[in-house]
């Protein structure tokens, strides 16, 4: 029962209300399975907006710190130069039922860091790729990386006031998407529209699951 002056926990008093950092965002005690979806796309395409539209909590930010070490010609001597980069993703949450919680992660801007943060796409059910028809070319890298990683995805065209209206077929051609990948139009600011894009992804995943069970 010696009390250390430097005791970092203080009196161990837990009951105070200031001591309830989660408050009404608390999950039920029965929650036991977290699943995730990814909202991917170029900068400014509406990822954060979509996460916010469907999330039951105010979107939060999770960060990872990466140290990039450039390797000399002879690396056995170890690290030579280092730069530190913080990769941030915002995310939201939807309670599926008393056991399952769905998390939605918006990908960070610097796409070259995505796959260095182990766990971003790992274990994701799938991804919605938001595209802006005014700058489709900014989505090429993202689509390529999703295909490389084997993450199932759909494409959602976010329409902005000055967007030229293209048909989904034109977008499919411009993005060189295989016929099996669904393309939908959406307004990420709207909850129902964002939800429908997510549902399109889920139905696509069901189709893929069906196909993978065929002999």
């Amino acid at each position: 029962m010696h009390s250390k002056v430097s005791d970092p926990v203080g009196g161990g008093q837990l009951a105070g209300t200031a001591d309830d950092p989660i408050g009404e965002d608390a999950l039920p005690d029965t929650a036991r399975l977290g699943v995730k979806l990814v909202v991917a796309g170029a900068f400014g395409v509406g990822k954060t907006t979509m996460v916010r539209s469907v999330s039951e909590i105010r979107p939060l930010v999770t960060e990872e710190t990466m140290t990039q070490a450039s390797l000399g010609v002879d690396s056995t001597a170890g690290v030579e130069t280092k730069t530190t980069t913080t990769v941030a993703m915002d995310f939201g949450r939807i309670t599926v039922d008393e056991e399952m919680i769905l998390y939605l992660f918006g990908t960070p801007g610097q796409e070259r860091f995505w796959f260095l943060w182990n766990g971003l796409f790992e274990g994701a059910l799938g991804a919605v790729v938001l595209v802006d028809t005014r700058r489709l070319e900014e989505s090429f890298g993202i689509l390529e990386k999703l295909e490389e990683s084997g993450t199932p995805f759909i494409v959602a065209i976010n329409t902005f006031p000055d967007s030229v209206s293209y048909s989904t077929d034109e977008v499919r051609q411009a993005l060189d998407l295989p016929p099996g990948v669904p393309i939908v139009e959406c307004d990420a600011r709207r909850r129902d529209s964002s939800r429908d894009a997510l549902l399109t992804l889920m139905h696509h995943l069901q189709k893929l699951a069906d196909a993978s069970e065929l002999p």
Partner: peptide, 16 residues
């Protein structure tokens, strides 16, 4: 992904 997981997520999204 597990079929049961997909079905439950779809149900939750439909009632958003």
């Amino acid at each position: 992904p597990d079929r049961d997981i997909l079905r439950r997520v779809i149900g939750a999204l439909q009632s958003l």
